[in-house]
Amino acid sequence: MSAPVWQRRRAAAADVWRQFRTNRGALFGAAFIALLVLFSLIAPLLIDRDGLEVVTAAGGSLEPPSGEYWLGTDESGRSVMLLTLWGARVSLLVGFAATLLSVVVGTLVGVVSAHFGGWISAVLMRITDFFLVLPALVLAAVLMAVLPKSMWTVIMAIGVTSWPTTARLVRAQTLSVESRPYIERSKALGGGHTHVIGKHVLPSVLPLVFANTTLVVGGSIIAESTLAFLGMSGPEISWGSMLDRANQSGAVTAGAWWYLLPPGIAIVLVVLSFTLVGRGLETVLNPRLKGER
C-alpha cells in the first residue's frame, strides 16, 4: 500500500524542485552550498595538515599574495588560502549542528504547546518568551565562561538562543492545522495524541520547518563567527577566529588586506547562499508568499 504514497511523495518533491529551479538565486545558493559541503568532507584528503600548524608552517609572516601563496600568509606564516578552505569545515559544522539542535527543540516545543494547549502551552510559551528576549551574545559569553572552551559549547550556545523563533513558527502552523475538521474526525476515530501529531500535524508542518531550517543555518554561521571574533571559541580554525587573530596581530594596521578579506567574503557568500535557498524554498512551500505572476 505504501507504493502510491511514495510515488506521490516523489512527485511532490519533483514538483518542488521544478518550481525551485526557476529561482536563479536559490539555484546558485544551492549549488554553492553543495560544492562547499562536498569540499569540506574531502578536505582532509586534499590539504596537508602541516601547512595549518603554526610550528610547521613554511611561509614568512604576513607575506602578500604571491605565486606560492595565492592569498598570502598570516602572522605565523600559514597560507591564508588553506586556512580559509579549512575554516569552512568548522563554520559549516557549527552551522548545521546548532541548527539541528534549535530546530529539534523548537519543533518539539511548538507542536507540544499547540497540540495540548491550556497550561502546558502557557508554561512553554513563557519559557519561549524568556529565551526570545535573552540577549544571545551575553548568554553565549556566560556559557563559554562556565563551560569548557570548545566548539560544542559554541554549538550549544547558539542552539539554545535560536530555537524560540522556530517554536513560534511551528506553533502557529500547528494551530492552523489542528483547527481543520479532519483532526476532529481523527479524534472521533479514536486517534490519540501521538496518532494525531504523527499522522496529521507533523507531515503538514515539516516542509515549512525545513525551509526555516535553511535560514537558521545562515544565522548560526554568523553567530559562530561573531563569537569566535570576540574570542569565545575553541582552538579550531574557523573564519571568525581568523578574523580575531588578524585583528589581534595588527594585520589591519599593517594593511594586510589578504588576511581579512578571504574569511570575510567566505562568510558573506555562505550566509547569502543559505538565505537564498531558504527564501526560495519558502516561496515554493508557502503559496501565500508567491504573489502575482
Binding site: 500500500m1 506521490r8 481543520r180 474526525r185 479514536g190 486517534g191 499522522k199
Partner: peptide, 20 residues
C-alpha cells in the same frame, strides 16, 4: 475539509482500523 488532503482514500479509511 474532513479528509486530510495528503492522505489517499485508502489511508483515510484505514485510519480507524489502524488506530484500533
Amino acid at each position: 475539509s474532513a479528509l486530510n488532503p495528503r492522505h489517499t482514500v485508502y489511508e483515510s479509511v484505514a485510519e480507524g482500523p489502524r488506530i484500533h
